[in-house]
Write a protein that binds this DNA or RNA. Structure first.
Lengths: 341, 341
DNA sequence: CCGCAATTTGAAACCGTTTTGGCTGATCGG
DNA sequence: CCGATCAGCCAAAACGGTTTCAAATTGCGG
């Protein structure tokens, strides 16, 4: 069933039927109801391909997932972010397009997305320092929202981010207040913007109390269980080991916990651990009582909001860059306690 | 730059240019080269929206992700499967469409995808017993491939699955060979098809050796860390606790490990643990030496293959249902050992 | 050198919508 | 009663490609 067929069945022109269905004012209310009823009866749904060509719009948003050819890591927070964004798109009748591309083809992918007209805008994932994608997207005039921020970007851009600096600063202060003086940082890869900000927060908190950050207590690697384990273990084997650890994710935190236990220590008593909890649905930090003390911020909610922001930008391109900073909450779990004496 | 413009610039008709670019035989080789060169010079890329309307094809594949409105779990293997499938689509110039929908709107979503013409086919995720989606997709004549199988389906269908029964049977036999007699099963939700098959494999192995499966040693829940912890803990507190555990995933395995350690036991000595390892990129089971003894099968590779299968089906709909069963390998880690005496 | 086939090209229809620019007939103010 | 206004509808163009069908040119055998 297509528009022409429906129209002839109603004894109307396609023009009028189209207008009736799209809520234009110039069609008689009685006619509109007749059209609506007939459309429902025949389960008519306008062909998306035709709408897209006629309107020149894609009604779709792209998410380009670069896959590092070397260490093929798919970001674990990705699934939840996508789920959140997808909810927004579904509500607004937009399609979500996922492009999985080798990272050396990322630029080409954006250009193709633009010139082939597959999407109306994109979400930029995992921004790095001086991220080249921002200038590129500006140049090709593609609306976009960055999940995170890109320190060093020359041009303004829309973003949505968690206050990573503040979160890690507060977590560090919390540990300091508990009497800890040697605090290890098990960070993510520090060419990622969020990891840089987290380190800044940690360093700031230490120096504000007159403590000097020690390189041996600062690790940076992928946020996997193994990396967390290795980094924590290495620190705990130092002559002067830390009494507390700050971990970049739930997963590396689980690695850290394993390292603590392997050495016969007790988490929350001998070693305090704070993690950043992205509130992943398959990786809940306990239920009633949180397992880890954590800085928490829902990445799924971030997905919802980032998508909403992008849709607004698409609907109204004249809108200046929009920015949204989410604060993480500090939640108490069982993994922290006063520094051992 | 569009086709008409490019054609007039070349002094040719749009027809010939289109044919030249699409590799039709009836165009002079010299002309084709001129066209190709000019297209490259101007960076011409045909408008996807127009191609789609003209050809009546979507050049896109849908992945419908149902989100349970109650327990909002996003399947953790999802990200890697998508990454694998996405690689295939990128190679073949297909778009991947992700629909995140409340599970009570799933049927409506498939129907809409079909009648609006957004996709040429779909991948069905997380099949359950007697899954209604199979009959539906047959009815609306939408090509599809199931990731997994759906016991009880009346009609034939294309699928790609891991031999879950065999994997868990082998794992159980391996533990039996090590002298274990009380083996706990920490399974996924048993309305999921794969979980049923795994239990079957486990039960078969036990009964083949004259052992009777005990309900107290069989748990079934979401595959989260917490659930794994709870199930393992409960079993280990039994008057006659198991000496080995079989866990449905890396994540629930980590919960089980925590339970073991919490009780002052040592994994691999007091309690042996085998997990199923989907080889998730952010959740590697060790590196050189696997942490857990495991049945391993790459879900990312499954994504690649399932997508290839679907594209073949789309290209050649007359093809009968295709089936592919992948075997999991049993890999030795540090989490298993002979049963304690 | 002619006729026929093969090669190469182009005009126009088509895909299924939206949108532009009338057209008709009724209503209304003067 | 007349011209202007307006509500309601429609024909046709447009979107940017693909595809059908026909035409023009070339090559070749006789």
């Amino acid at each position: 069933m297509n528009l022409k067929e429906l129209a002839s069945r109603l004894g109307l022109s396609p023009t009028t039927v189209s207008r009736a269905l799209n809520g234009y004012a110039e069609v008689n209310e009685a006619t509109r109801e007749r059209v609506m009823a007939e459309a429902k009866r025949h389960n008519y749904r306008p062909n998306t391909r035709a709408i897209r060509l006629a309107t020149g719009r894609a009604f779709a948003v792209g998410h380009v997932i670069p896959v590092a050819t070397r260490h093929e890591i798919v970001n674990p927070i990705f699934a939840d972010f996508i789920a959140g964004a997808g909810e927004t798109y579904s509500r607004n009748d937009y399609d979500m397009l996922l492009s999985v591309v080798p990272d050396d083809q990322e630029e080409e992918t954006y250009r193709a997305l633009k010139s082939k007209g597959n999407v109306d805008g994109v979400i930029v994932h995992a921004p790095r320092m001086n991220d080249p994608r921002i200038a590129l997207l500006h140049k090709i005039d593609m609306p976009f929202v960055v999940h995170g921020r890109a320190t060093g970007a020359a041009l303004p851009y829309s973003w949505l981010d968690v206050n990573n600096r503040r979160a890690f600063q507060r977590a560090t202060e919390f540990l300091l207040d508990l009497g800890h003086r040697r605090i290890g940082l098990v960070n993510g890869l520090e060419f990622m913007d969020f990891a840089i900000r987290r380190r800044t927060g940690y360093v700031d908190a230490l120096t504000a109390r007159g403590l000097t950050p020690e390189p041996a207590l600062m690790a940076s690697d992928e946020m996997t269980e193994i990396s967390g384990y290795r980094a924590a273990r290495k620190m705990l084997m130092l002559p002067a080991p830390p009494t507390a650890l700050l971990c970049a994710s739930m997963i590396s935190g689980m690695g850290a916990r394993r390292a603590v236990q392997d050495m016969g220590l007790v988490m929350g008593r001998d070693v305090s651990v704070i993690i950043h909890d992205d509130d992943l649905s398959y990786m809940k930090n306990g239920d009633d009582v949180p397992l880890f003390t954590a800085t928490r911020s829902s990445v799924r909610e971030a997905g919802r909001l980032a998508a909403e922001m992008l849709l607004e930008l698409i609907a109204n391109p004249s809108l200046g860059p929009r920015e949204k900073l989410l604060e993480a909450e500090l939640i108490m779990g069982q993994s922290t306690g006063p520094a051992p004496v």
